[in-house]
Design a protein around this nucleic acid. Structure first.
Length: 491
RNA sequence: GGCGCGGUAGCCAAGUGGUAAGGCCGGGGACUGCAAAUCCUCUAUCGGCGGUUCGAUUCCGCCCCGCGCCUCCA
């Protein structure tokens, strides 16, 4: 495999490989569990999922770690507002995140550590930072990172410390932070305050809780080592979160680099505008499901742009995705019976099978090879989709004339492609079949029977009139040579 | 102001120094008694102005516009 990925740290496309030669060590900043994740969050997680799938199909196992932030200002505030204790509150949203992630067919990470479960590791990290002079405690029992002690600070995001100081000058009056040495210093341990209520842990500096940035350094190093291969997140995390992680992790270990490859995903817009609560376009998966969209349609739409460009999510795109899925389902129905090892569902091979097939599945014609090549070239999903859809069109036009062997090869390619994209066609098909009424109301069925009879008499005027009445009832008649089907209108 | 990402057909979205993938929508046609599906077919000179070049959408410069980050937002 020769997968190349843009590295924020160098600004260049670089080869992805496992330093230990065995598994790619991959850390992702996960969600803060204080409410439902929105589709912008999921865009990032989906891109990371696509990346992981490409690496694994390329033959390299991935040691994937994604954390859960279950203690911070927002979780504490919202838990209090909900009248729940913090663990109960965050567990609920954690479960919700898992449900959404499963619906979107995200592969679960190998480990999913949470901040609350790793307080000792975080305290240990802070102690080492204090010992090495990178941190200092203040009178109130908080601990801050001393940015002046880390000359490389700002290198990842290209921000220089002088500018930081100037820009931050307007916030000097922030009462909470009056005892920091420098306004740019960030908090590692926050001393307990009355509004924290029951939330707090004992530490060498008194009762308190870890600052947000602390957890990712402590947990990534704990699970993946002081230096690992790839670290992902949304572009907004580049500064200050990832910058701070570098300062913390390299500060204690002295090992460089903390992360070899920084992988940042651009943001998402909705219907041409940025997502914001005031615009009311802060979409969650549940919102879109309520509008009738299937998670697989959302997944397709969210992966249809390049990860380093802002993507405009539109309902129209989601409908285009639905159409593509329908084309695939039709194709599987017409050409795919008994083809390949997946039997009746050759376009829905299991993930282990997709991994086992590896890149061999893409060794066919030009577009098949090109689809894989596009993915290896900085994860160019839209180009890969273009090649894939050209293959779909070819199958639609030529498939009926194929020999069994040709059909099997094509379905192996297409099944693997959908596997890499994490599109579970079977789930989509079954959920939709379940969602629609299997049978028309007796009244509609009677009209349809009457129409079929009129049609048999070649009384087309009556037949058409009945078709209209059936349509008014919300159903449509689809004729076959030997009969007809009734389907609900609406999608 | 600093750093970063963009401006390609009605919409979404790739891409290349030699006259621009793919999808959706829409138009026309074939097929069908009608309808659905399917098939065929049509729709762009790439934000603006200069420059380099035999030739630029692709390289350089300037300008205009949109978006993100600049201390806890994927």
């Amino acid at each position: 495999m020769a997968l190349y990925l843009h590295n924020t740290a160098s600004g260049e496309r670089e080869r992805v490989y496992a330093a230990d030669g065995e598994a790619l060590r991959f850390y992702c900043c996960g969600p803060t569990v204080y409410g439902p994740a929105h589709i912008g969050n999921f865009r990032t997680f989906l891109v990371q999922d696509l990346f992981r799938r490409v690496v694994e199909v390329g033959g390299l196992p991935v040691h994937h770690v994604r954390n859960l932030t279950d203690v911070d200002d927002k979780t504490i505030r919202e838990a209090a507002a909900a009248g729940e204790d913090l663990p109960t509150f965050t567990a609920r949203w954690r479960d919700r995140f898992h449900e959404d992630a499963a619906a979107l067919n995200l592969l679960p990470p190998r480990e999913e550590p949470s901040a609350v479960e790793h307080i000792p590791e975080q305290i240990g990290l802070i102690e080492r930072l204090l010992a090495s002079g990178h941190a200092y405690a203040t009178a109130d029992g908080s601990v801050y990172y001393r940015i002046a002690s880390f000359p490389r600070y700002g290198q990842l995001s290209g921000i220089d410390r002088e500018a930081l100081r100037e820009n931050a000058s307007g916030r000097l009056e922030d009462a909470d932070e009056y005892d920091k040495e420098s306004v740019s210093d960030f908090v590692l341990w926050k001393a307990w305050k009355p509004e924290d209520g029951e939330v707090g842990w004992e530490s060498p500096w008194g009762r308190g809780r870890p600052g947000w940035h602390t957890e990712c350094s402590a947990m990534s190093v704990h699970y993946l080592g002081a230096s690992f291969d790839v670290h992902g997140g949304g572009v907004d995390l580049c500064f200050p979160h990832h910058e701070n992680e570098i300062a913390q992790s390299e500060g204690v270990s002295g090992e460089r680099p903390f992360v070899r490859h920084w992988f940042h995903c651009e943001h998402l817009q909705v219907e041409g505008r940025k997502m914001s609560k005031s615009l009311g376009n802060f979409l969650t998966l549940a919102d879109l499901r309520a509008e009738g969209f299937h998670p697989m349609e959302i997944r397709w739409a969210l992966l249809s742009g390049h990860y380093r460009k802002t993507l405009n999510f539109t309902r129209e795109n989601a409908r285009a995705a639905r159409k593509a899925l329908q084309r695939l389902a039709d194709l599987e129905h017409s050409l795919g019976r008994g083809v390949g090892t997946a039997g009746e569902a050759p376009l829905s091979p299991s993930w282990p099978e997709v991994v086992a097939r590896g890149t061999e599945a893409f060794a066919g014609g030009g577009d098949q090879r090109a689809a894989w090549a596009a993915l290896e070239d900085d994860l160019n999903a839209p180009e890969a989709l273009g090649h894939f859809l050209r293959e779909v069109g070819r199958a639609e036009r030529e498939g009926r004339g194929w020999e069994p062997g040709e059909a099997a090869a094509w379905f192996s390619f297409a099944g693997s492609f959908l596997g890499v994209f994490g599109i579970d066609l079977r789930a989509w098909r079954e959920d939709r079949a379940q969602a629609r009424p299997a049978e028309a109301p007796a009244e509609v069925a009677a009209l349809a029977a009457e129409r079929w009879e009129a049609k048999g008499r070649r009384d087309f005027a009556s037949a058409d009139a009945l078709r209209d009445r059936i349509r008014e009832a919300g159903w449509q008649v689809l004729d076959r040579p030997d009969g007809y089907d009734l389907e609900p209108i609406g999608d």
